[in-house]
Write a protein that binds this DNA or RNA. Sequence first.
DNA 1: CCGACTGATACTGTCGACACACCATGCGAT
DNA 2: ATCGCATGGTGTGTCGACAGTATCAGTCGG
Lengths: 258, 258
Amino acid sequence: MDGPVGAGKRGKADKTSVGRAQAVVRRVIADGHDRPSLVSQIACEVGAEIVLGVLAPGDDLNSVELSRRHKTSRTPVREALMLLEKEGLVDVPPRRRPRVNALSLEEIRDIYRARGALFALIAGDTARGASAGEVAELRGLLGAMETAADRGDLDGYVWANVDFYDRNTQLTNNRTVKRILDSLLLRTLPLRRLSLSQDGRLTRSIDDHRRLVAAYEDRDADLAAALIRSNHMNALKALERHLGGSTDDGHAATGPSR
Amino acid sequence: MDGPVGAGKRGKADKTSVGRAQAVVRRVIADGHDRPSLVSQIACEVGAEIVLGVLAPGDDLNSVELSRRHKTSRTPVREALMLLEKEGLVDVPPRRRPRVNALSLEEIRDIYRARGALFALIAGDTARGASAGEVAELRGLLGAMETAADRGDLDGYVWANVDFYDRNTQLTNNRTVKRILDSLLLRTLPLRRLSLSQDGRLTRSIDDHRRLVAAYEDRDADLAAALIRSNHMNALKALERHLGGSTDDGHAATGPSR
DNA sequence: CCGACTGATACTGTCGACACACCATGCGAT
DNA sequence: ATCGCATGGTGTGTCGACAGTATCAGTCGG
């Protein structure tokens, strides 16, 4: 049915992207207590390579090779792989070699729906409870997104978008939801470029975010939540068109997938 | 004398509860690929002891003692503890002894809000997409809850409730959301008994669930979602009354015992 | 009497090693 | 030529060991 997707041109790994990706992975992995341990370092590097597409879905991640590459024993490598497995980036079957996880279209759909629901919660809280200064900060981040878009800098836009989401999720002080959203974000990060490169998606995304910030400024919680949901659903639809357009019918977008 | 972890009479550990708890933990831990490995076994046993309250929040979980108790080396124990950490049951500070995680009231609030949002999503999908047979199955599970409640069997009710939620989350085939919800359920499991033992909470809970199943049968997605949300908010309020009501003195049951 | 220092103790993070399980190759049988 | 089976190589799961650090008991100075 919906097989592994996202295999493709291997890796755009300019320096800034690597740094950004590692930072994001680090935030998700070493969430609260940052331990400068070997395992988190390995997890960050491998995780960054995955989200950047340097490692394609399905690639082998056997621990002996990784231990050689990182000049450590296999123990920390194994722990790092387990971390990444729990973030959904790696699949570690028992007694078999770990591999970069391949997202099925169904999983993508599930993730976007979950993200939409949780982010709607966050957006409502933000509209209700964020201070004026915090909303202004979000508008600043929106500005970064706009300038990146004006330059036609897709990667820059994606990272600015990540910044926006990151700050927005922080604002509610709901660490639990933020953690979940960050994890889901990590999984879909390789797809974001894809989704936004669709015709018209980028301008639509910017428009949605402009309206979202406006809703924050107006303290309109319901509108903010609805906008977030709409944005996620549209991004999902764009992905479905791009990935599963040949195989799947479209009506599964909003219904329970089965 | 080496302090045996969790020595004492804390927690109700009748046989069936232990089995139920281990099953739930296993479902969350060894989610997709069930590996009969040592690590999952250890994780299940320790996790069950935590959710049953045999191990109180703050209790030491040092790997050497656990390895002795489970007659293994420390490696699988460490991995099991990392698993449980990612489920939020254990806190593993760097270079310090792992401990049973203590939920703050704020965390509880966050978790219930996240659960409410995601379960509302699930409930809407169920109302829209579940087959008549599946809804009937849910009604059957509701019946189990009712009989347990009629017997005044609080533990039985809690487990029947877990069964209901478990089946309900399965119905949407949204593995991602189910996984998240199961993880959140695990964290709040020690609190459920507490919440339901509040005056009137149990009858109210049953009432909510009756109406929920009715909404499913009527295919009323909005009502189902609203009911779920309401149920979660009420449970949270009951917990806040119980835990935060006596703010000054740390309460023994779940409060930050030190 | 209390608080800081010192030493002993115990636990963590990491390592290299080993047995078993998986995968691929090659051989023989049909 | 294809299929089934033995065989070797590679990687995983687990183990015991070691260095480094946190924790605790006892001691000393205030």
